[in-house]
Amino acid sequence: MNERLRSVGAALVPPLVAVVAALAATSLVIVVSGGSAVDFLRALVSMPSERALLTIVNQASMLTIAGLAAAIGFRMGLFNIGVEGQYIVGSCAGAFFAGSGLVAGPLNILATLVVAALAGALYASVAGVLKVFRGVSEVISAIMLNYIAFTMAGYLVTTYGEKRGLTYATAPLPLDSQPLGFAIFPGVDADVWALATLAAILGVGYWFLLAKTRFGFDLRATGASPSAARASGVDVEKMTLVTMALSGGVAGLVWMPAYFGSVHAFGVPEYFQAGLGFLGLAVALLGRNQAVGVVFAALLFAFMSGQSNALQRADVSKDVIDITQGAIVLAVVVAYEVVGRRRARAEAERVSRALEREEVAA
């Protein structure tokens, strides 16, 4: 029982300490710049309106998917910083397909999800192939691919999309492929997006894959020690390729809740929310690459973003949210490193005492 409590404490204390440290650091920045830390904290923890709560839930669904995409790579020991580019490619491909009307009705939703996931997987595979066959770091190649994705999507939309005012976008999603959302608050003309449930489905699938399948075991073993995994018969190169493709496939679905929920077209930047891929990396780090942790981290980041209006009413710049989010990521990395070192030291001392007892008994 004590061991379980220590394990739970080791999992919960670092993110809590990181959040508190980040808020303290942000408050200090505000005070130094001549603002009021009290107003900042009061606005941040104030109760959002019903419409803001809906926005937070919808935003959290996309951040959860982005966090799961990044977490798949992290568990393998891969830093898939290309989640941003992969979800741009998946969104662009999915929107072009859905707007074409090749498939009618609800089947169009399912087919679009498949197209978006495949596009993201194929794009992520470029970094995987370069790493396995040419030894190129996935960090370097994925960063370059992010810029290529953004530029390529803009070119495709401008060339093959429709002009809307001063910008371009894909053909609108047909009405028979627009799923109804979930009304939570009566009298509020906004709903939780129907495909917000996709985040829950992917979260359960992520947990099952890692905890209940041989592939998940091989993935975790390779992430812990590639040399040991190779010695036990795991094809590390194949695992790298498959994991990058799987991470990219999930990344390709990041924007689908918003696309089917309210936007119904793709176009950069007016019809698209950039930055979710980079936030997904932070969500995965804060959530410790665990399905439940990723969900709570996504809700926290979505809540902070949703409080930007409250901050502006308190004469606090909404850019402070970016500072707080960055500070949380930095603090949680440091906190987990400290906890990991303390745990390793405690384990070494426990083993040492056990050996001493055996020597005395002998």
Rank of each mutant, 00 (worst) to 15 (best):
V338W: 10
S227C: 01
F185E: 11
A10W: 01
Q178Y: 03
E84P: 11
V295M: 13
R313C: 02
E359W: 03
V329G: 07
P186S: 04
R220C: 07
G249T: 07
G35A: 01
E138N: 07
I65V: 15
A60V: 02
G203T: 13
T26D: 00
V89R: 04
Y160I: 02
I30V: 05
A251C: 12
T243N: 06
A169P: 09
T213L: 04
A196G: 15
V89S: 08
L276Q: 09
V129C: 07
G261F: 05
L219G: 09
A190N: 12
Q178E: 08
S125M: 11
A93S: 12
L122K: 00
V103F: 12
G252E: 13
L122F: 06
L286H: 12
A124G: 14
V188I: 11
N58D: 15
W255Y: 15
I88G: 06
V234F: 04
W207K: 04
G85A: 04
G267V: 03
A282G: 15
M144G: 14
R341I: 05
G73R: 07
V351M: 06
E138I: 12
I201R: 02
S91R: 02
A21E: 02
Q273F: 13
D189T: 05
V236K: 05
P14S: 03
G287S: 05
L130S: 08
F301T: 14
R345P: 10
G203S: 12
G187P: 07
K212A: 13
W193S: 07
I81C: 15
L102D: 07
G101I: 01
V20K: 03
R134D: 01
Y87D: 05
N58L: 10
V268K: 01
R342F: 08
R343A: 04
A298D: 07
R313I: 05
G326C: 06
R313A: 14
S247R: 03
T324M: 12
S305F: 15
V360S: 03
Q273W: 01
A284N: 12
V8H: 11
V188N: 10
